[in-house]
Design a protein around this nucleic acid. Structure first.
Lengths: 343, 343
DNA sequence: GAAATTTTTTCAAACGTTTGCATTCGATAT
DNA sequence: ATATCGAATGCAAACGTTTGAAAAAATTTC
């Protein structure tokens, strides 16, 4: 019954008929404390399972050792890889990660940030939601900036904000992917594009476009269809592509999921991959290497992004007064596998 | 410079030459406050971006509105589905989730729990690490119980602990999967087993064994090989299986990843699926439906588990004094697809 | 115009811990 | 015996907020 109330320093003080200060110092191995007193108190504390109340310390020191991670979803490989990266660096330093999922909703994002600020989170890693991005909202961010809480953008970013950011070079990855297809002699390259407006979608799309341009290949509007980053969303678009009178001989998917969806549809149609149709994805998710045929893709270093973002945060935290935001752009890397490698 | 220190209630009080109590009441719409005073204070607070310090409130009310989620990994579909489920129920109630990843290490698990207790987390969802389970450690849990912090086991559990738990009926799912293969006339059914000792592995293994027994089929030791829940770990074991003088005509994988690894190896060997070899996985991960052939699997309701676990937590929290732990076992469901469906 | 009443505001304590400074208590030196 | 010193401990304030009770101020009543 009463054992539910955690033991406090005062409880121990009462037990030893001494002041809380003495107990505090004893527990913290302060040199001015008598050796016997120290030992007795420490032993008793261990016995009754004393555990210091970090909340009170947070209040006193204005340090919470907790960080916010605000992401649209955690059900994709890439996002969890990023979180793992953050974890790898920050958990050993004693930070706790508060994960907030926005489901691409502006309202949830706004509320999450507000909550994190109220909880006096010491830093925020943010991958803005699609809704936020589409509508161009930013007031909720001003709030964070004003508080001088370090804000680190991950992948999805606002160009004109004075913050650090860690992103992957989607543009050159996409360019390399398409160039690879072109080099192999594919002529009609389709693109299953991501949702409009997101940096990630647009950068990859731009890579696709510019590569075609470089090789003087026509851009056929009907070969570019939007999808939604998941397998299902690629099924119908791919069917539509393959039913064109002049169908594509290769498809570049905005991510692996989408490319895998396309692969499934192509196989159902009896097409041989890569002979009849070449496929390239993006992410290098673990599964991509074990598809049949294995999927050519662009490696996206999620863990590394998480670790770099952590570094950016630490830099900003320890930075002297005048802080200059840093931008880290990690290269993405083409991983050539069977789904594109026709001879 | 000084704008970095968040505005406090005292700052506002100074500005209006009134006491902090008045400000507090004004901000909380206390009826005993003069209408004008209230309006002025609220307006000013909004202007300067006042945000109440939840840390101090946590200390005062002994309520932190934060919950711990301790899991071995977050890079599998299932785990993230569980977290999403927790989120779905608990985020709208104002709870913050502190995610701790243990990487299957006992030490990290112990430290995570200790940290969560120090932070006065109001509840802990735990999927014990493999190391903890193997060694049978439990002292770190006693600690949580003693504090009367609600502890909810997820999937991996200790039989003899007086806590609530939410698990999936792995046993019957596995049984159904193997029975399905047997019914279709598969005779030599191999099992790519998970790591020894984990409830999840053992339950599925038991389902496999008991089903074979029920149908009077011999259990061949060499058809049972350990894997590690991921694709890579299935490659060599599958190769070994297929090189046996009397190779299996079906493989039941402990999860989809493993089954997908097996699928890849089988295809490389030129085997037709399901004619030459039948395959069944476990999890019903999104990708399983889009493999070629699509993968027969057992649906494992991760989201639901998360939501049920939340419910268990809330029950325990609101429960009157004498609390009786609940066990929820959700059914798993066979999803029949192409990889097993030979005619 | 004083008493009674209502409205509005302030006081003080509480949550758990740390920490600079003051105090106490022996012991040693003079 | 007194001054001096060192060791060990206690006091009080601080962090930001809420809240019951007391006080003050304004309003009404007779």
């Amino acid at each position: 019954m009463n054992s539910s109330r955690p033991v406090t320093i005062k409880d121990i003080a009462r037990r030893f008929r001494c002041s809380p200060s003495t107990v505090s110092r004893a527990l913290n191995d302060h040199p001015a404390i008598n050796e016997d007193t120290r030992k007795n108190i420490q032993e008793y504390a261990r016995e009754v399972g004393y555990q210091r109340n970090e909340v009170s310390l947070s209040l006193l020191n204005k340090k919470t050792a907790s960080l916010g991670v605000v992401v649209p979803t955690i059900s994709n490989y890439y996002e969890t890889a990023v979180i793992e990266g953050l974890h790898t660096v920050l958990q050993p330093m004693g930070y706790t990660l508060n994960i907030c999922v926005t489901n691409e909703s502006y309202l949830l994002e706004k509320e999450s940030l507000s909550k994190l600020l109220s909880n006096r989170t010491e830093g925020i890693f943010l991958s803005v939601s699609q809704e936020t991005y589409d509508a161009g909202y930013y007031e909720h961010l001003e709030n964070v900036i004003q508080r001088k809480t370090p804000l680190i953008f991950i992948d999805r970013e606002y160009e004109d904000f004075e913050t650090s950011r860690a992103t992957v070079d989607d543009y050159h990855g996409a360019f390399a992917a398409v160039e690879h297809l072109v080099t192999l002699g594919y002529k009609q390259i389709a693109h299953l594009k991501g949702p409009n407006g997101l940096t990630v979608s647009e950068q990859r799309f731009k890579g696709y476009l510019n590569c075609l341009k470089k090789y003087n290949m026509p851009v056929r509007e009907e070969l570019i269809i939007n999808t939604n980053f998941n397998v299902e969303s690629a099924i119908l678009p791919t069917k539509r592509l393959l039913e064109l009178t002049s169908p594509p001989d290769a498809i570049f998917g905005v991510n692996d999921q989408v490319a895998i969806g396309a692969m499934r549809v192509a196989k159902d149609k009896g097409l041989r991959i890569p002979q009849d149709i070449g496929l390239v994805g993006f992410d290098n998710s673990p599964i991509s290497a074990y598809m049949y045929p294995s999927l050519t893709t662009v490696h996206r270093p999620g863990r590394k992004i998480g670790m770099e973002a952590s570094r950016l945060f630490l830099n900003q935290l320890n930075g002297s007064g005048d802080f200059a935001p840093e931008s880290i752009v990690l290269p993405s890397e083409l991983v050539i596998r069977e789904s594109s490698l026709r001879i």
